[in-house]
């Protein structure tokens, strides 16, 4: 069970949150300049390390805010929680 330190509510159980998927890198600002291959890459290829990943969690049964957390995929250790992206 993850213990996510919500900036508004303090440390809360994972069961209060909904998983929102991996935090994608920012959308390319000039779409026309991006090749088809790079678009597909941006859309479908997430980082998949045995290490830290950034992901979005929604405090749905809490304050309702969207958080981005930095979590280790082997130890589940959370190194950073921030509001929004």
């Amino acid at each position: 069970m993850l213990l996510i330190d919500c900036p508004f509510c303090g440390p809360r159980n994972e069961s209060e949150f909904s998983f929102g998927g991996p935090a994608l890198t920012p959308r390319p600002s000039d779409p026309a300049a991006v090749s088809d291959a790079d678009w597909v890459d941006w859309l479908t290829v997430p980082p998949n390390p045995m290490g830290l990943v950034e992901e979005r969690w929604w405090h749905a049964r809490g304050c309702g805010s969207w958080l981005t957390i930095c979590r280790h995929t082997v130890t589940h250790e959370i190194t950073e929680v921030r509001l929004g992206r």
């Binding site: 069970m1 998983f19 990943v53 992901e55 995929t73 082997v74």
Partner: peptide, 13 residues
């Protein structure tokens, strides 16, 4: 468990 994980145990939740 929806988030990425390389673990081989079960999550309590």
């Amino acid at each position: 468990d929806l988030g990425q994980s390389f673990r081989r145990d079960i999550k309590q939740s």
